[in-house]
Design a protein around this nucleic acid. Structure first.
Length: 476
RNA sequence: GGGGCCAUUGUCCAGCUUGGUUAAGAUUCCAGGUUUGGGACCUGGUGACCCCGGUUCAAAUCCGGGUGGCCCCA
């Protein structure tokens, strides 16, 4: 058991609140290495759920899991110029084994394109070997110098990296649809987090990609954060790593590639999105335990209550219900499990046993319901569904309520200052993009929604004809 | 990239300005008792000065460096 509860309010001291939730709900812990955290069992279970969801989906599309080495020889890493430029400043290197200096230093993978595509080039000979669809669950290291935030910005993090290779550009482009839909489904339908889907700008796209499509999430503190992402690599990596095949006409061609990922950062986005002054709030679909059963033990009447709870608990197995018969006080347990975000609490006391009823308390609203024993399971199922929907609805409302259309720099600056998410037209010029960032104190174009309007207004910065509708906000 | 704040037990925190007793308290944890419808209570117990170096008869306290955490600005 942890010590006492959250002592600050979410909207008064956001970062302190976040730190407390993470530590007191036993989600993560700090270590001696800056930016590297422990994913504790209760919360790692949520990551496992995300892995399950991805694994189930990619199977449908014939993607196979594999595992490539953690170390990437320098000579491999530097083959794709833009790629290495993008990652060079934050690559951690292994230079020694014991006291012996290595002939070639080894990068700890910041991502696995280099090491995987080197293999791909050996494996792929003819058009018959394509498409090749490989996914890897891995940890990567990006040694950032901005100060770390558990889950959101850690130097080591976990992700899936899907790496697919196609014979034609058309096939490779088509893959975007199901990959983005998979990530949308996980973020929105499971994690309950509203997602803005769109294309990244040239400036913000993945180092080495032709284009990137991201899911962006707006957080209650006025900052946005990039979620899962799909990159279309075109033939850029194929050319750098010699990923070629003989086509049906016996001609050598470069292959077309994609990369896509969802990372453990989502675990932080989840806390930010749904957490409240009492702690974590978990959407039922990803909660390791969907309910907790708390007996109310009054002296002399414990026996009946405990017996009743044991009976009821048999019907609660499918919810992975926690039966908390520890000797902490009832109030203590209430607070403890609320802090850990368990979606539904079931209370059973002597009065309830008499009346053949149970008390259900939902975590998202705190609402108490008195229901007949016989209807308990059905009612819990309903509640879980409703909580799941409600959390997504809240998240969506929060994002939409904070969106502001802005027409000029003045409006943009005000929107960003007010911690809003700005929607603006943009001419597509990188100079304008950079100036926007300067003028707003760091807000950037998150992405440009896939569904662009038919008509465009003027560029929010230069006033020339707009070519894109863009989401702009401060971002992690 | 620039600036600032901070580090004492599992957690929170006092002591530091002005160096000197057994490093105080709360909470957690352990044992026993008592209690339980929103963080009850009693008794006893375990448990700490981030690391390296310097100044000094003497360092949690002063100085330098490191490591880690947090905040603000770009």
């Amino acid at each position: 058991m942890a010590e006492k509860g959250i002592t600050v309010k979410k909207n008064e001291n956001f970062s302190e609140w976040y730190t407390q939730v993470i530590q007191k709900a036993e989600l993560a812990d700090y270590t001696g290495v800056s930016g590297c955290i422990v994913f504790r069992p209760y919360y790692y279970a949520v990551w496992e759920k995300i892995m399950d969801l991805v694994n189930a989906r990619i199977k449908k599309y014939s993607v196979k899991n594999a595992y490539f080495p953690l170390f990437i020889p320098e000579s491999l890493l530097i083959k794709e110029e833009e790629h290495v430029e993008g990652f060079a400043p934050e690559v951690a290197w292994v230079t020694h084994a014991g006291k012996t200096k290595l002939n070639e230093k080894l990068a700890i993978r910041p991502t696995s394109e280099a090491i995987m595509y080197d293999s791909f080039s050996k494996w792929i000979r003819s058009w018959r070997d394509l498409p090749l669809k490989i996914n890897q669950w891995s940890n990567v290291v990006r040694w950032e110098f901005k100060h770390p935030v558990p889950f959101l910005r850690t130097r080591e993090f976990l992700f899936n990296e899907g790496h697919t290779v196609f014979a034609t550009e058309k096939e490779s482009l088509k893959e975007q649809d199901w990959v983005i839909e998979m990530y949308r489904y996980i973020c929105e339908d499971y994690l309950g987090i509203y997602s803005m889907i769109g294309r990244k700008t040239e400036k913000e796209k993945f180092a080495g990609a032709v284009f990137s499509v991201s899911l962006e999430h707006f957080m209650p503190n006025g900052k946005a954060i990039q979620g899962p992402i799909f990159h279309h690599d075109g033939q850029k990596f194929a050319k750098a790593y010699d990923v070629t095949f003989l086509n049906k006409n016996e001609k050598k061609e470069y292959a077309w590639q994609n990369t896509w990922a969802i990372s453990s950062r989502m675990l932080g986005v989840l806390i930010y999105s749904h957490g409240d002054d009492k702690g974590l709030v978990l959407p039922p679909k990803v909660a390791p335990n969907k309910c907790v059963l708390v007996p109310i033990l009054i002296k002399g009447k414990e026996k009946n209550v405990l017996k009743k709870c044991k009976d009821l608990n048999r019907n609660l197995k499918k919810f992975d219900c926690i039966f908390d018969d520890s000797d902490y006080s009832a109030g203590w347990k209430f607070n403890q499990w609320e802090m850990k975000g368990v979606p539904v609490r079931i209370e059973v006391g002597p009065k309830d046993v008499e009346k053949k009823q149970v008390v259900l308390v939902r975590r998202d609203t705190g609402e108490k319901l008195f229901v007949k024993e016989s209807e308990m399971v059905k009612k819990i199922e309903e509640l879980l569904l409703d909580i799941q929907n409600n959390l997504y609805k809240r998240s969506k409302k929060m994002a939409l309520d904070n969106m502001v259309d802005v027409k000029d720099t003045k409006e943009l600056k005000k929107a960003i200052k007010d911690k809003k998410l700005a929607k603006a037209f943009w001419c597509g010029d990188q100079g304008c993009e950079e100036m926007m960032k300067d003028q707003t104190g760091g807000a950037k174009i998150l992405n440009m929604p896939l569904n662009q309007p038919k008509k465009f207004g003027k560029c929010v910065y230069c006033g020339k004809d707009g070519k894109h509708l863009a989401y702009i906000a401060k971002s992690y």
